[in-house]
């Protein structure tokens, strides 16, 4: 009698057993057939925990700190004294070989720094490094318009001071300091910011 009662107690009712099986298989399933579960189907809890207001502000703080710290290597480089060394005096060309409105290419201060000595139509002598300050394309002297042109992206520089006048370049061309002695033009130095 007692053992029958225990067996009856342990044996689940028919309906209850079915319900518990439904719970295991469907109630927690991603694609449930239950309408009550589907009410919140569009809510992804993981995304809610990951992409929220607090996370946004934390990311903003991280971005601010990353931006600020990214300037440190530049500062270290500047303080380590990797500045412009003293330059040699280098012969560029004979003035007689350079008529007005003409230009000649030379390299200063190293073989990797192309430069342009220009005898302008006004009779002035100017020299600049000829790598465009936009994307390093070579710059040419346009005699007709008396202007320096970078043909890659139509960047124009004023031939008198090397400053950009049109197009994408934002910085001036580095100025090569020149000296004329006994009809010969010499490069003696370089200035990055001038005018």
């Amino acid at each position: 009698m007692m053992s029958e009662a225990i067996a009856l107690y342990r044996k689940p009712l028919k309906g209850v057993e079915k319900m518990s099986n439904e719970c295991k298989k469907e109630r927690h399933a991603k694609r449930s057939k239950s309408d009550m579960v589907n009410l919140i189907q569009n809510v992804d809890q993981k995304d809610d925990l990951k992409y929220n207001r607090r996370a946004f502000l934390k990311t903003a703080v991280g971005a601010s700190m990353a931006l600020g710290l990214s300037t440190v290597p530049f500062s270290v480089r500047a303080m380590m004294g990797l500045s412009e060394p003293d330059h040699e005096r280098v012969e560029i060309a004979k003035l007689a070989d350079l008529p007005e409105g003409d230009s000649v290419t030379f390299y200063y201060p190293t073989e990797n720094d192309p430069a342009l000595l220009i005898h302008t139509v006004n009779g002035d002598l100017v020299a600049y490094n000829s790598a465009c300050t936009h994307l390093m394309c070579p710059v040419f002297y346009e005699k007709e318009e008396d202007v320096l042109l970078c043909p890659c992206h139509k960047g124009y520089f004023d031939v008198n001071n090397g400053h950009p006048v049109a197009g994408p370049p934002q910085r001036e061309l580095p100025l090569i300091e020149i000296e004329v002695e006994n009809g010969t033009v010499y490069a003696v130095g370089r200035q990055f910011r001038h005018g």
């Binding site: 931006l67 600020g68 300037t71 500062s75 500047a78």
Partner: peptide, 14 residues
């Protein structure tokens, strides 16, 4: 190559 003002900007950033 304006190395004298780079640390100033960097300092403001820090």
């Amino acid at each position: 190559r304006e190395y004298s003002i780079v640390p100033i900007y960097s300092g403001i950033s820090i």
